[in-house]
Design a protein around this nucleic acid. Sequence first.
DNA 1: AGTCTCACCGTACTAAGTACGGCGAGCGTA
DNA 2: TACGCTCGCCGTACTTAGTACGGTGAGACT
Lengths: 222, 222
Amino acid sequence: MPRSQGSPDRPQLSRDRVLRAAVAVADGGGLGGLTIRSLALQLDVKPMSVYYYVANKSEILDGIVDLVFAEIELPTPGGEWRAEISKRAHSAREVLRRHPWAIALMESRTNPGPATLRHHDAIVGTFRLAGFSVPLAAHAYALLDAFVYGFALQETSLPFESSEDAAEVTGAMMEHFASGQYPHLTELATDHVLQPGYAFGDEFDFGLDLILDGLARSLPAS
Amino acid sequence: MPRSQGSPDRPQLSRDRVLRAAVAVADGGGLGGLTIRSLALQLDVKPMSVYYYVANKSEILDGIVDLVFAEIELPTPGGEWRAEISKRAHSAREVLRRHPWAIALMESRTNPGPATLRHHDAIVGTFRLAGFSVPLAAHAYALLDAFVYGFALQETSLPFESSEDAAEVTGAMMEHFASGQYPHLTELATDHVLQPGYAFGDEFDFGLDLILDGLARSLPAS
DNA sequence: AGTCTCACCGTACTAAGTACGGCGAGCGTA
DNA sequence: TACGCTCGCCGTACTTAGTACGGTGAGACT
């Protein structure tokens, strides 16, 4: 049998277990809640044990970003491009909603892992095989990802999801609105966002469709 | 004369001076370089003096986000909407390039200051006065800001700006490319991004125009 | 039996946020 | 002039977090 340390009924540590635990901690307590000590607690080991599998915290951050990318459904190059791109856009948005802390990380981390590279390759490939020229694929790719990440960014910075949640939160802002200094914002809030049935997430499809329409139009007629 | 403490030739501290110094420190050393101690050093006072003007570090972060928003040129509601929106989009991108750390902050901070609210009000107002319905203004606003923030996010996470810079950086990635695992990414890099004259920033206008075209089309004919 | 290595940990140093209580300078009042 | 108040700034010290450095016991190999 292998060396298999791992005290009573705790599986042996591994880089993978460390990273998965880090994702779990971040999901639960945000990036701020992810410390070496909280991570060790989650893994049921002592803090310094973590350093046997990763060099430092930065490596953990790089690692969990790549884990998140791996969760996003890839488009299939060669398939119907609109459907494929739309599928992965929705998947990306969903994943980023599950791991909101990941958005902020992508900003500072400039150390793409394999899943990240695979991801980008599939997207560019989907555009190219659909007849996009190289420059047009670059345009499309930049635009699409700007939208997806930007939307996710807005979504997590919004302190509410539905009109009911919104009602709660806007209480504090109401004094501002009442001052009459922000008439258009007030109108938007009271006549639209605070109406029953409003969900910010619904704005996603409007934007995505508009972008896909625009891209389709910029393709030379097939 | 006023109490005017402020030791030899150092102007008196103030909340405003604290926040402006914080922006300067963040510009120079990123968010990570902004500590109470580095801030105090910049202000030529001792760390605890800062706490006479702000309650805690979180308040500093909220404050500098609002300072950044204040730098963005506002659109003028009632003007030609395409020109106005385009102007502020370019201004926002430029400001976020000057203060890249601000993007990450907007994610975690949910405490809008006056400049932030004024900003949003002007944008919604510009759409409304141009004939956009309330729901359409909401769509347009969400889409546009997703694009602007998302683009800025990509731009700062890119470790290069021009094709020359790119050549430097991709050295480390070249081994990945050489493996043949990422053919489309390799094509994009070698045939386009690494060509002289390429600048990622140029993708901005393509995306912005596509979005504005789409929005114009969704407006009922005037 | 002796040695090696793996997996994990104890101790301790450093950086950073910040609670708490000074403390001098100048002003108000008498 | 004397007393005391408040303003603006600071010294000390506690806490949390990253992590360098050097163990240390358990099994494997010789």
